[in-house]
Design a binder for these strands. Structure first.
Length: 568
RNA sequence: GACUCGGUAGCUCAGUUGGAUAGAGCAACGGCCUUCUAAGCCGUCGGUCGGGGGUUCGAAUCCCUUCCGAGUCGCCA
C-alpha cells in the first residue's frame, strides 16, 4: 500500500510535468530519514535542474499536483521544506487499507514475479570424505534461504546438492587409505578418519612430491572404472552422505537432486567432442585448453594424462541442467574465491555459441577466516559445523533452564533456537563479506540475533493465546493513529517489496534486517502499550495488529530457514 | 606483478539509480520487572565514512589517484 501510494504519486508528477512543460524530468519519491519529516518525501532538485525553472515555481507546482491527485485522500499534510515536499499519511485510513490487504491475501507477501519460471540452485555441495565445514554451512543456509524466497515469488525451484564426489582428491584419499589407512578405524568413524587421511597425505606429499602423481594416476583409473577404486569411492560416498544427513536434518534442509560431480563422468565426452567440433579446443603444454582471449586465463578442460577437471564436469552439469530442467536461471551458491571459475564457464558457453550465459549467476559469498586467513582442509584447519551447532543448542538449553524451567519439550525448543541462532547469524549480513570465525558471535543471544526474533514472536503468541484472539473480530483504525502502531503497519505493508528485493538481489540479509526492524518496533510498542485492555474494540484492534506482526515475523523466519516456535 | 572484492563508532555491520542533522546491535556507563515472557525496553558515551584530489546546488554513494587487507591467476575443487 505504501509503495503503491509512492509509485502513484510519482506517476502523477511525471505525467503533469510532461503536460505542462512538455519535457520530462527525473522524479524521486522516497522515505525521509527522520520520522519527524513525514512518511513520504519528494525532493524537487532534480526537477528544477532538468526544467531550468525557479525552485519556488516547481515546489508549488508539485505540491499542487499532489493535492489534486486522487491519492490525496490518504494524505494528512503536504509540507514544503526547502527543496523537499514532505507528506504525512492519514494513519487511520492508510492503516485500514493495510489491514484489509493483509487479510484479503491467502499468503501475505507472496509475489508473482517468478511465475512460470524455473530456477536451479546449486548449493551446499560438500566435498565427500571431508567433514562438513563452516564454509559449507554458509552455502547451505544461503542457498536454502534463497530457494525459499524465490519460491515465495512464484519461481519453480530445483534444489541441487552438487556433491564434490569426484576429482583428484579421491586419488589422494584412496592412495592414503590403501597405504596407511586402518580399515576398522574408517568403519568406526568414516568421515573423521578419511579427513585425517587426507591431511596425512598432504603432509607426506610435502616430502615426497611423487605422491601427487600417484594420486592423479589413481584418479585417472577411477575415472575409467577400475572396480577396486570404484568400490572404495562408493563406500566413502555413502558413509559421508550419512554423516551429512545429520546436519541437513538439524537444519531442515532437503534437496531435489544429489547428483554430484561423479554423475557426470559419462557425460563429459560429449562436451569435449562438441568443443573439438567447434574448434575451441587446443593442445597446450600437453593439456587441452580453451583459449579465452586477453581478459581471462585459458580454461583447462583436460589434463595431459587425459583425465578431466572441475570445469569439465561443471560444464557437463550445466548442459545437463539446461536440458533436464530448462531453467531460466541457474544459481551457484559458491564462495568468492571461485569467481574466475564461473567467469570462465560463462565465457566458454558464449564461445560455444549458446545464448544463455547471462542466466548463469554466481551467488558468491565471503570466506570464513581464521586468524585473518582462509581455512584449509588440506592442513586440517577447519571447524566442524556440528560442534558449533551443538554449542548453540547447549547454550540455548542453559537459558531455558534458567528462565523457563517448566517449559515442555525443552530439548526440542533448545534445538530450534540454537540452530536458528546460527542460521540467522550468517544471514543477517550481506553474503559477500568475509568474516572471522567467532563462536561467541555465532551463539550470541541478545541484540540483532535469531533468538531476538524468536523471543518477539513468542511474546506475541503468548498474548494472543491469553486473550483467545480470533482473526475476524471487529477493529477500529483509530487506534492506528498511535505512532509506534502505525510504524508497524507501514512495515507490514512493504513486506512483499522486501521479499521481491531479497529475491532480485539473492540477498536474504535484506529480509533479515527487515525482520530485526519489525521485531524492534514491536518491542518498543509492547513496552509502551498495554495490549490486553478492558475495552474490547481496542483490545481486538491491537491484537489484530500484533497478529499481523507475528505472522510476518514467522513467515520471514521460515524463509530464512529458521524454525519459529510458540513458547520459550 | 595483473585482476577481483573489501576499508563507515572500540568491535560486528546497515546505508551506493547522488539528497535533509551518516544509522543499528555488541561492549561501557545509568535507569526500568506487585501489571500481557527483562533472551526485553529507555537513556548516555562513541564518527577526519582509509588518505588526497575532482565532478555539483548537494558525495559514504560517481570519477581519478594513493595506502591497507583478503582472494584468484593451466594440469585442486
Amino acid at each position: 500500500m505504501i509503495e503503491k501510494i509512492k509509485q502513484e504519486i510519482k506517476n502523477e508528477i511525471e505525467k503533469s510535468i510532461l503536460m505542462k512543460y512538455e519535457s520530462s524530468a527525473p522524479v524521486i519519491v522516497e522515505e525521509p530519514k527522520k520520522a519527524s519529516q513525514g512518511d513520504i518525501s519528494v525532493p524537487v532538485f532534480t526537477i528544477v535542474k532538468a526544467l531550468g525553472k525557479p525552485m519556488p515555481e516547481i515546489v508549488s507546482f508539485v505540491k499542487n499536483v499532489i493535492e489534486e491527485s486522487p491519492w490525496a485522500t490518504y494524505l494528512e499534510e503536504i509540507t514544503p521544506m526547502g527543496g523537499f515536499i514532505n507528506l504525512l499519511l492519514k494513519k487511520s485510513s492508510v492503516g485500514k487499507r493495510i489491514v484489509e490487504d493483509f487479510f484479503s491475501e491467502e499468503h501475505f507477501g507472496s509475489s508473482e514475479i517468478g511465475k512460470g519460471k524455473t530456477v536451479c540452485i546449486d548449493y551446499s555441495s560438500p566435498n565427500i570424505a571431508k567433514s562438513f565445514s563452516i564454509g559449507h554451512l554458509r552455502s547451505t543456509i544461503i542457498g536454502h534461504s534463497i530457494g525459499n524466497i524465490l519460491e515465495k515469488c512464484g519461481y519453480k525451484i530445483v534444489r541441487i546438492n552438487h556433491l564434490g564426489d569426484f576429482g583428484t582428491q579421491f586419488g589422494k584419499i584412496i592412495y592414503a587409505y590403501l597405504n596407511f589407512g586402518d580399515k576398522e578405524a574408517v568403519k568406526q568413524n568414516p568421515v573423521e578418519e578419511l579427513a585425517k587421511l587426507y591431511v596425512e597425505f598432504h603432509e607426506l606429499a610435502k616430502e615426497q612430491p611423487e605422491l601427487e602423481d600417484k594420486a592423479r594416476e589413481i584418479f585417472k583409473e577411477l575415472e575409467q572404472n577400475n572396480p577396486e577404486y570404484v568400490a572404495l569411492w562408493a563406500w566413502f560416498r555413502e558413509e559421508s552422505l550419512k554423516d551429512y544427513m545429520k546436519v541437513y536434518n538439524l537444519l531442515k534442509v532437503s534437496f531435489d537432486s544429489y547428483h554430484g560431480e561423479a554423475f557426470y563422468n559419462d557425460k563429459m565426452a560429449a562436451v569435449i567432442d562438441e568443443l573439438k567440433q567447434k574448434n575451441l579446443l587446443k593442445k597446450d603444454q600437453g593439456a587441452m585448453i580453451v583459449d579465452l582471449g586477453e581478459a581471462y586465463p585459458p580454461a583447462l578442460i583436460q589434463k595431459s594424462d587425459g583425465s578431466t577437471l572441475y570445469i569439465t564436469r561443471d560444464l557437463s552439469a550445466l548442459f545437463y541442467r539446461k536440458n533436464t530442467y530448462h531453467f531460466d536461471k541457474v544459481l551457484y551458491v559458491v564462495g568468492n574465491e571461485q569467481k574466475l571459475h564461473f567467469d570462465q564457464i560463462k565465457k566458454v558457453v558464449d564461445l560455444m555459441g549458446y545464448d544463455f550465459s547471462d542466466q548463469i549467476v554466481h551467488v558468491n559469498f565471503g570466506l570464513v577466516l581464521q586468524d585473518g586467513k582462509k581455512m584449509s582442509t588440506r592442513k586440517g584447519k577447519t571447524v566442524k559445523l556440528e560442534d558449533v551447532l551443538q554449542e548453540a543448542i547447549n547454550l540455548s538449553l542453559t537459558y531455558i533452564e534458567e528462565k523457563n524451567p517448566d517449559l515442555e519439550n525443552k530439548e526440542l525448543t533448545a534445538e530450534k533456537i540454537g540452530v536458528s541462532a546460527v542460521v540467522f547469524n550468517d544471514l543477517k549480513n550481506y553474503r559477500s563479506g568475509d568474516f572471522e570465525f567467532n563462536l561467541t558471535d555465532m551463539v550470541n543471544f541478545s541484540g540483532q540475533t535469531g533468538p531476538y526474533l524468536q523471543y518477539t514472536s513468542v511474546r506475541i503468541t503468548s498474548i494472543l493465546e491469553s486473550v483467545d484472539y480470533h482473526e475476524l473480530t471487529a477493529f477500529n483504525p483509530v487506534f492506528f493513529e498511535y505512532d509506534p502502531a502505525f510504524e508497524m503497519l507501514k512495515q507490514i505493508s512493504i513486506y512483499k517489496d522486501i521479499i521481491e528485493k531479497s529475491a532480485e538481489e539473492y540477498a536474504p540479509s535484506i529480509l533479515a534486517k527487515y525482520l530485526l526492524n519489525m521485531a524492534s518496533l514491536f518491542n518498543t510498542y509492547y513496552a509502551k502499550e498495554k495490549i490486553n485492555v478492558e475495552d474490547e474494540l481496542e483490545r481486538n484492534t491491537k491484537c489484530r495488529l500484533i497478529y499481523m506482526v507475528r505472522n510476518v515475523l514467522n513467515d520471514g523466519m521460515r524463509l530464512l530457514g529458521m524454525q519459529p516456535i510458540e513458547k520459550m
